[in-house]
Amino acid sequence: MSRYIIGRIGQALLVLWVAFTAAFLLLQALPGDAILIKFQNPELGLGPDQIAALREAYGVDSPLWAQYLQALGNFLAGNFGYSVQGSVPVSQELLANLPATARLAGFGFSLAVLVALGLAFLATLAPFAWLRSAIQAIPSLFISVPVFWLGIMLIQTFSFRLKWISVINPGEWEGLILPVITLAVPISAPLAQILMRNIDEVSTQPFVAVARAKGASPGWVLWKHVAKNALLPTLTIAGILFGELLAGAVITETVFGLNGIGGLTERSVRFQDASVIQAVVVFSAACFVAVNLIVDLLYPVFDPRLRKAKGAAA
């Protein structure tokens, strides 16, 4: 077992290294850089000599491989460099923006799971066939809604028309409601679709008939027998959707003008603040890899068949 865990962690580190390298190369391939964007502004009145000195100080003109090794070494040492635009260490920027995004992502994901579960259970237990098929169609609708459009529509409806939620200086929690919904909808859709399919599949299993034959009601069977079996394969998908969650957070934070990792990403891309982008990419990749690693390691906890059998397994 421990060998398996070590192997998986090794894989995770490899993925991180690849993400780091790819991000580094892509950023280097872009024309121009943050220094030029920030300091070439004529209002600052810096001469070519001074800009060259700044470039030297940031080390942007040394050969590619040297920059790469330097960046990699710094990353390994936990030093993410300086934000050119913000003139603060990148780690500080990340830390400052992390709580807001974590809150948004956490609530968004929780809501997505709740919506998916609700839809899937309703689609199974609703009393009429037409109602069940109507509910089954909802995820396809959700999946096809673009995040930015949904965000704008929600603001239009609930803030401007109905005036339920203020957009200008909302309270900390009030301001979270619409972004969380915006983020949750597209994530809930694939989860709900997979859950519905799994529930249908598990429901045809003979052990479900046996449970019915014990006298269990449909609700009991769904809750005590089908749910856990149907949720197991959904775990993997949930881990993969975490990537969607990060991407969704960028757009959502931009649409709602929130401060967070998403907003930071958007700003640093606009200004080509390479060290920030580099750090955001590696940080996101690390989160993604960690979540999926945890999902894989959790499987044996939920599924007794994956626990190592004692003695010989045939």
Partner: peptide
């Protein structure tokens, strides 16, 4: 109704299924 049958299923009529391998819930 199915609800009324639930009361007698298991208590008055019970079932021994065909395939024991798939007739028990694997995670319980």
């Amino acid at each position: 109704s199915s609800k009324r049958l639930d009361a007698i299923r298991g208590s008055q009529i019970s079932l021994i299924p065909q395939d024991p391998t798939s007739s028990l819930n694997p995670v319980k």
